[in-house]
């Protein structure tokens, strides 16, 4: 049972001299969850050789305390896990949350295995029910939604999909909401309690035998799909590379980022890193415009974080038309000339 006065521990990552977006959203999600059960939220973070971010970086996120572990610059996944494990042993939290990004999904199971506790991966929604954290996640390729609990082992661990995650309402909403209708955290930093957490700096626990990184090559994502406020997704209904090229020009003119369905990527119309979906990227823009996308469950798994969806599809039976706020049944061939009339050649 989650007893009042217990703790939620969240793992945070730095970005520059502050916190990464994913970490801030995770803290707010934890903060919403904490209100349901009178819990406090603590953060753990690796500080790098020069120390943690300034205290102000942790403001307004609902954190009571932060444990910063001074260690190597660019720690390995194993070193992160060791630090988080140390924090867990110090705080004995009821709940431990890690953002579901590439490294989070590697370090969390290491910590869970060491603590011999349960871990639910890639949750889209969290809430407290009868004192237990109910972890909602897609399974079977997204065809099924599973609600999972860790009845006995502690802490209850979850990796949380932050870009498309739904906030849990402070009024303790009981009904599971369809996860594909996420509205993002619904908070901006600064609106929550502005008090600053206490900060304790510790030495990161040493880990011997860790892998040695010999070379590191940064890869630029030549797009900021996850940060975009408007995303245009290209589907098979665009017909081919010409349609995609028009979509790209449309995106440029509207200041939007370009994404694609798996089907379009498989046909080589767009590069793989633009794929949105269960096996692609998750986006949470203010507006998602889909062009010729049918809206498979796999696609929606990556697109569900969008606050607003306008779907364009000539087929009235396309599933996405039911999921979008606005469904426009129209052929792309008939739409392009109009858009060009308004925006110029595409």
């Amino acid at each position: 049972m989650t007893t009042p006065g217990g703790a939620i521990l969240v793992w945070l990552e730095t970005e520059g001299r502050g916190l990464g977006e994913a970490s801030k959203r995770l803290a707010l999600i934890a903060s919403d969850l904490a209100k349901q059960g009178q819990l406090t939220v603590h953060g753990a973070i690796m500080a790098g050789a020069y120390g943690p971010p300034p205290l102000g970086a942790f403001a307004g996120l609902g954190l009571t305390g932060v444990l910063a572990f001074k260690g190597r610059h660019r720690p390995t996944v194993g070193e992160r896990a060791a630090a988080l494990l140390q924090a867990a042993k110090l705080l004995s939290p009821d709940i431990l949350l890690v953002a579901s990004d590439e490294r989070g999904r590697e370090m969390a199971p290491m910590v869970a295995a060491r603590l011999e506790t349960g871990l639910t991966a890639d949750c889209v929604s969290l809430r407290l029910e009868n004192g237990l954290m109910v972890q909602t996640r897609p399974a079977f390729g997204g065809d099924l939604i599973a609600e999972i609990i860790t009845p006995i082992a502690r802490p209850q661990m979850a990796t949380v999909r932050v870009s498309g995650a739904q906030p849990v309402k402070a009024n303790g909403e009981r009904e599971p909401r369809p996860p594909w209708r996420g509205h993002g955290p619904g908070h901006e930093p600064g609106l929550a309690d502005p008090t600053l957490p206490t900060l304790e700096v510790l030495l990161a626990p040493p880990v011997m035998g860790e892998p040695t990184v010999l070379k590191r090559t940064p890869l630029s994502a030549d797009d900021d799909l996850e940060k975009a406020s408007v995303v245009i997704a290209c589907g098979l209904g665009l017909g081919g590379p010409e349609g995609v090229s028009k979509a790209k020009n449309l995106a440029d003119k509207l200041g939007a980022s370009l994404g694609a369905t798996r089907a379009a990527v498989d046909r080589g119309w767009l590069p793989g890193h633009r794929q949105i979906g269960l096996s692609g990227r998750a986006v949470s823009p203010n507006l998602l415009i889909t062009l010729g996308v049918s809206g498979s469950v796999q696609f929606m798994a990556g697109a569900g974080g969008a606050k607003d969806i306008i779907a364009v599809n000539a087929d009235p039976r396309a599933p996405i038309l039911a999921l979008a706020r606005v469904g426009l049944i129209i052929e792309m061939e008939n739409l392009w000339p109009e858009l060009e009339d308004r925006l110029g050649p595409l």
Partner: peptide, 18 residues
Amino acid sequence: PTKILRTHKPKANDKVLA
């Protein structure tokens, strides 16, 4: 340590199409 509480199919919302 983890248990499945329940499972269900994802729901689609009713929308007005145009």
